[in-house]
Design a binder for these strands. Sequence first.
DNA 1: CAGTGGTCTAGACCACACG
DNA 2: GTGTGGTCTAGACCACTGC
Lengths: 221, 221
Amino acid sequence: MSVAIAAGAVCAQLRKDILAGLFAFGGRLKIDELAARYATSHMPIREALRQLQGEGLVTVEPNRGARVRKVDIEFIRDIFDLRVALEGMLARRAAERIDQSQLARLSAIEEKLEASAARKDFTAVLAANQAFHAVINEAAGNVEAIRVLEVHWNLIIALWGRHGYGPDRAAGVISDHRQLIVALRARDADGAVMLASAHAVKAKQEMLRRFEATAGSAKAA
Amino acid sequence: MSVAIAAGAVCAQLRKDILAGLFAFGGRLKIDELAARYATSHMPIREALRQLQGEGLVTVEPNRGARVRKVDIEFIRDIFDLRVALEGMLARRAAERIDQSQLARLSAIEEKLEASAARKDFTAVLAANQAFHAVINEAAGNVEAIRVLEVHWNLIIALWGRHGYGPDRAAGVISDHRQLIVALRARDADGAVMLASAHAVKAKQEMLRRFEATAGSAKAA
DNA sequence: CAGTGGTCTAGACCACACG
DNA sequence: GTGTGGTCTAGACCACTGC
């Protein structure tokens, strides 16, 4: 046996399943159903739901049950504004603290990202993109901000997956990244802030455009 | 009877008790103990702890139990940097959207704050300060950012309570607030960002100074 | 190889929605 | 009412710690 800590495992798996689109945004999360799916009893499920509620991925109404967070256009605007603010701040700290090894990793990841883009493997591009930002966050070293941002990053990746992440978007990302690396290497904090913020603003605009285009088909199921 | 939803009540009360200093930062949270204190059984306590974990106030190690989040100088720097970034962003959105009624409430709160400061009632000043920022957040209307900020605000207030919030700090707050109101009224978004950010940076510096001064007496118990 | 304390299961209880 | 489904209690089980 020894699955060890059912609640933690359920939480991780459920988070993954929600982001993978297995449960629709705004959709009901029934305890019995989840208990059957994850082969456990009620309480570990409840714990997982509570934790995800704390993270903001799930909403729970007393005596009414849990739902996956509803995603509408205001929510998207909100989390992207949040991302713009946080990534600017993280870029500043990264510029002040980044070391050679991190710069090297950043360049390596960027090369992989560009190769994947050339291959039109946009799932790989998304993954490399996340890795790129993870290195910057690591260099910034603000654990608390990263904790906050992580939840939203995962959501944003899920949204790109649902609404399409194509060549046009990838091209913009690549030039932004290259310039950001230059700024970080030069320890140009103000430049890094501007570049990172602009990068996030572009992502926001792009996402809003796509979400509006796909509007109506908000159900994922 | 009918306490209705033990888990939710426990969560709220425990949060309050932690922030009130009833449990030391970094201190152990034993389930049996909490169950006795809040007159309930294990599971509602566990749920509350999970939710607070999601919010970042509590850390849980599998099979090792829960602790109140450790507060050290890096953590303080981190959450204040986060606050600087978020309040700047919120101030921009507030400048773009604030209405007359909100501006009026802002001025009213500020008058109360100044009166309390004159009376040297610094608990009231802290409360009014929170109300002031609450109106700005409401005007900004970024629910997600506010959700994130709220947890940290509560922590920050708790820290001011522990490390002293005195006349010198209050004086700076007052002039900052007045200028911020002017910028918001004029819909000067860039100005509001600068003022709000600088305001938060000052708070950060002040808090770091006090925390370092009180260092060593990190235990609250 | 106990003791402490965290984790899970099973099942009863109860709130709310519907016919 | 009846049914669905959320919530809680009691107690067994099990992982780690220290004698």
